[in-house]
Design a protein around this nucleic acid. Structure first.
Length: 153
DNA sequence: GCCAACGTTGGC
DNA sequence: GCCAACGTTGGC
């Protein structure tokens, strides 16, 4: 699950001190992922995008099923969608809680260079989804790399 | 800032 | 339903 750290990074999730809304996703594929593939207890990688470096920052746990993202109804919100309504919500979100912050960022370059991670959906050319599935093997490998001592130099 | 690759919109 | 124009994402 990707987010721009300038907007909401892993430190924001840590500061939340508990479950927080993963709000603002406005893409139908992601909406359907939330609806069809997310369950409470699922584990996820927290990935930083538009950052320096971009890459994997840590892990979190999903603590809710998908529900209507309240920001879509709020005219004051950046994520307001005038075409949505509480009667017919268009966008969903889930709650997540912080699990672990890696001692370093696993950069996109490092992910691409890794034989296991290089196949990740999020690395596919042209992939723009902020939420993408990953395999058990990719999850395990991400933990290994994230927990490894930062490279020198 | 550039631009590839998508997604969305709206005229027809 | 087609498709051109436009908007967005996000790496680089």
């Amino acid at each position: 699950m990707k987010s721009e750290p300038d907007v909401y990074g892993i430190d924001h999730l840590i500061a939340a001190g508990g479950p927080a809304m993963w709000e603002g996703c406005r893409n139908y594929t992601v909406r359907n992922f939330f609806r069809d593939r997310f369950a409470a207890g699922d584990l996820a990688l927290f990935s930083h995008s538009n950052a320096n470096p971009s890459g994997l920052a840590g892990t979190m746990r999903v603590t809710s099923v998908a529900y209507a993202d309240p920001t879509q109804f709020d005219p004051e919100s950046h994520y307001y969608d005038p075409k949505s309504s509480p009667e017919a919500p268009r966008w969903l979100c889930v709650d997540v809680e912080f699990l672990e912050k890696f001692p370093r960022i696993v950069s996109l370059a490092e992910m691409r260079a890794d034989p296991v991670l290089s196949g990740m959906e999020t690395l596919r050319k042209g992939s723009r989804l902020s939420v993408t599935p990953l395999t058990d093997a990719e999850w395990e490998r991400a933990l290994e790399l994230g927990r490894a001592a930062p490279a020198q130099g």
